[in-house]
């Protein structure tokens, strides 16, 4: 029996998964046709009509036969979105996250990019590709050999690095990113049995390159301006590398936590193990 009052109707509507999906679909697209709802929900026509009837105070069918959200429906949609953001965002409600360090890191975290919804998937994919390309170009121009979040210095001065080598280093940069992703995904699957959101994790994975791109760009500017020979600039370069690495590690942690539904502590363990595991390999290679 459908509840009569608006309030009862509101909570009744939100109590069923399919009804929540209907509200979300219409809310995300501003309106929806019956055919589109049927295609998205993959349930029988009768079931959809039944739930649309239950949502009579939240959804209205207008003259163009499309379904729109009423004012109450919009309120329900916004409420659902806010709740979903809270749920899919890692547990950052702790008192600890009010500390200046984590507050600062949270400000530097593009949450919408990592917690994107299906509508913005292609936009995020394009941003990811752009971030990767920028990183690859800067890595090649710097003549650095990438390994995870580390960069090895070239044995020869940048002016003498062959253009072919620069292009090769750019390709290595992209390969390195994919390898880094596969290792993270593998650890999530093997140790934490988290197989969900692989594609979403892959698309938003390139966000860890954002700090790295900035670092590589700054480094190139320092080299090209000739200030890289000064001791203070070298110190600055090293400090910047460390800080941008930590920022990238934080973004990876957040991404793991949000998309792989890992506790923040477990996500940090993965970041730590992969990062320092990578370091050990670099060291062994160097020796």
């Amino acid at each position: 029996m459908e509840p009569a009052s608006a309030e009862a109707n509101y909570y009744y509507a939100l109590s069923h998964e399919l009804r929540r999906k209907i509200i979300n679909i219409i809310g995300e697209n501003k309106y929806s046709s019956f055919t589109y709802l049927k295609k998205e929900l993959k349930v029988s026509t009768g079931t959809i009509y039944h739930h649309l009837d239950s949502l009579s105070k939240l959804i209205v069918q207008q003259d163009d036969k499309k379904y729109y959200l009423t004012e109450l429906g919009l309120h329900a949609y916004n409420s659902l979105r806010e709740n979903i953001d809270t749920i899919i965002t890692p547990d950052f409600s702790k008192k600890e996250f009010n500390s200046p360090i984590l507050k600062g890191l949270m400000h530097l975290t593009p949450k919408n990019y990592i917690n994107y919804n299906n509508n913005t998937r292609y936009r995020m994919l394009i941003i990811s590709i752009i971030l990767t390309l920028i990183g690859a170009i800067f890595c090649g121009l710097n003549g650095l050999f990438p390994f995870f979040l580390f960069f090895g210095e070239p044995p020869i001065t940048i002016e003498f690095i062959d253009i072919a080598l620069k292009i090769l280093l750019s390709f290595v940069f992209v390969g390195n990113l994919l390898l880094y992703f596969l290792i993270n995904e593998g650890i999530c699957r093997i140790f934490y049995k988290k197989k969900e959101n692989t594609l979403k994790f892959l698309i938003s994975f390139a966000i860890i390159l954002f700090p790295i791109d900035i670092y590589l760009c700054l480094r190139l500017i320092l080299i090209l301006t000739g200030s890289f020979d000064f001791a203070s600039v070298k110190i600055l370069d090293n400090v910047l590398m460390i800080l941008f690495q930590v920022w990238a590690l934080w973004l990876l942690t957040y991404n793991l936590s949000a998309n792989k539904k890992l506790k923040i502590e477990n996500a940090l363990i993965i970041s730590l193990l992969v990062h320092y595991g990578g370091f050990s390999i670099v060291l062994l290679l160097a020796i």
């Binding site: 996250f97 500390s99 460390i242 800080l243 923040i264 502590e265 940090l268 320092y276 370091f279």
Partner: peptide, 27 residues
């Protein structure tokens, strides 16, 4: 004890300095 994640992040930064030292100096 509540500041666990803060402590971890600070230790990350600290170890970062050691990593740079090891990578550049040890070879």
């Amino acid at each position: 004890l509540e500041y666990r994640i803060n402590s971890v992040i600070i230790n990350f930064i600290g170890l970062g300095f050691f990593l740079v030292f090891v990578i550049k100096i040890i070879p």
